[in-house]
């Protein structure tokens, strides 16, 4: 549905994005992740046909965003960062204007506006001046204007920024419900949000894509091992050796001092292999006190930190080749 190919954009001497390529399948919700200034908004502005790229191409629903911009604009709903709205208009007339500008036929307009207000939970403020709305409501009005023409593709730049926890939950549920019938690409700073809402992720850093794919596959790719955190009060060297000899364990690392003269360890094993039982057995056999035993889930957050921070350390070399970097960063 969205095909981005070697997109490059310069602002004068500054290169905002360089050779960005990714695709989004129909009905998919993809999270666009990156630190501030990574080029997320630039990419989205190009996709929304606000400005052309300097080089490369992007296609939305089969149409080129530069040459067939009108066709793309008919099929896209865009919500820019900070949600610019007409402060002097009231919510319902504003949405009616947007629907009309987007070519929703007169007969369907009233119904569409009412539907979208219901869906975005703003029906109760429909007669209020946009100027007087709280940040959360503005955000939802922004989402409503993107949705009002029922577009095939939605481009949402930071849709949950500045919302309170309840509103975030509501908006996330709303976005999640859009998957399937709409193709959604959303940018965010909040990593758990991507895990909750999106099926795929594209991570961008300093203008280039550093990782992309379905979330679980990315996690697997960057963290091929399962991890268990253990605290055992016992002779450290013996404990380490004992755990190392458990079948399936790839690596045991001491991560610090425990209480009662014991140590803390991180035990890595092959993915899918749960060694917690064996560790317990071992401790019981040796009469060591097992003080803590915890499985550590490798999350998207760690992937993100690893690719973004890892890149910063290694400069231009592809991220994720040296696992030591990630552990170091993660424990920082």
């Amino acid at each position: 549905m969205i095909e981005v190919d070697k997109l490059t954009k310069h602002y004068g001497p500054v290169t905002a994005i360089r050779d960005v390529s990714f695709t989004v399948a129909p009905g998919e919700i993809v999270g666009f992740l990156g630190p501030n200034g990574a080029g997320k908004s630039t990419t989205m502005r190009v996709l929304a046909c606000f400005m052309p790229a300097s080089d490369g191409s992007a296609r939305v629903a089969g149409f080129d965003v530069f040459r067939e911009s009108m066709e793309v604009r008919r099929r896209i709903g865009y919500m820019p960062e900070n949600v610019p709205l007409y402060n002097d208009m009231r919510v319902a007339p504003y949405l009616d204007f947007v629907a009309e500008a987007k070519g929703v036929p007169r007969s369907a307009r009233k119904r569409r506006v009412a539907e979208v207000m219901d869906r975005c939970l703003i029906a109760d403020v429909q007669n209020r001046l946009i100027r007087h709305l709280s940040k959360g409501y503005r955000q939802r009005v922004g989402l409503a204007q993107a949705l009002v023409s029922d577009p095939a593709v939605l481009v949402l730049d930071e849709p949950t920024i500045g919302l309170d926890p309840t509103q975030i939950k509501e908006i996330r549920a709303l976005i999640k419900s859009l998957g399937g019938e709409h193709t959604v690409i959303l940018s965010t700073h909040i990593l758990p949000e991507v895990a909750m809402v999106c099926s795929g992720v594209v991570i961008i850093n300093r203008g280039s894509i550093v990782a992309q794919g379905p979330i679980d596959r990315l996690v697997e790719q960057f963290f091929p091992t399962a991890r268990v955190e253990v605290e055992i009060a016992g002779p450290r060297a013996a404990v380490r050796e004992g755990m190392r000899s458990i079948p399936g364990v790839v690596r045991v690392e001491e991560s610090g001092d425990g209480s009662n003269g014991g140590g803390r360890f991180v035990v890595e094993s092959a993915r899918g292999r749960d060694v917690r039982g064996e560790i317990f057995q071992l401790a019981a056999q040796q009469k060591w006190n097992l003080l803590e035993l915890r499985q550590v889930g490798m999350t998207l957050e760690e992937v993100f930190i690893r690719v973004v921070a890892g890149e910063e350390r290694e400069g231009a070399t592809p991220a994720g080749t040296d696992p030591a970097v990630a552990t170091e960063v993660a424990t920082r």
Partner: peptide, 14 residues
């Protein structure tokens, strides 16, 4: 100034 132009220019309006 308000950024509404950005939004307006992404609508299918020439």
């Amino acid at each position: 100034r308000n950024g509404t132009l950005e939004l307006l220019m992404t609508y299918p309006v020439s």
